[in-house]
Amino acid sequence: MTVHFVNQLDELLLRSVRMGNLVEDMVQEAGEAVFEPGDRLARRVISRDFAVDDEEVKVESEVIRLMALYQPVGPDLRLLCTILKVNNDLERVADCAVNIAERACHLDAAKDLPGAETVRQMDPLVRRMLRDVLQAYSAQDGEAAKKIFTEEEMVDALYAQTVKTIVAEGADSSHEMASLLDMLSVAKNLERIGDFATNIAEDVVFLSTGDIVRHQSPPEES
């Protein structure tokens, strides 16, 4: 019975990581869609959201089934709790990617907009955070996950800079207000993806150590 349970746990983690990879692809394509002419990539991102939603429900059902049937404890319980929370966060990351893609459909000349430069910096940073945290999640490596925390601060700083730029330059620019708001929305959704990546990192730390590290000041670097 135990071997059977462990196999099912492994399969579920793998399934969750695959869902993460799908979401990662969506975020990458959504970021590229902002600065690419046309809406081909953006439409592709939007269409993939159904698959993520469907997978989220299936993973959640499987977590509940395993909890009900096996009443796991210790690291098994931590893993199932983590999968459940990561599952929810990944679905919301996918929603952010869809939001970005929807904005991208209206942004044909994004590269000239105020704030575009910092958004271009945020995009690869957020993608790297997501990639790294999914690798840490797959390896159940809390130490690797902790490295995400400092990157979130960089994303927040870039987002703040983006807002400042749009406010400062937007009023005097020749661009339409709608385009400026679209760019602001793109930045906001990238910043939220960074937040979700950080949430996942916190969950991976819990998975690895059993310690809940949410809502704590980041450890001071020596």
Binding site: M1, T2, F5, V6, P72, V73, G74, P75, D76, L77, R78, T209, G210, D211
Partner: peptide
């Protein structure tokens, strides 16, 4: 004990391994 035991033997026992 049931969420983060300190000893590997305890963890193996409570998880059935």
């Amino acid at each position: 004990i049931f969420t983060k035991p300190k000893k590997q033997q305890t963890e193996d026992y409570i998880t059935g391994r």
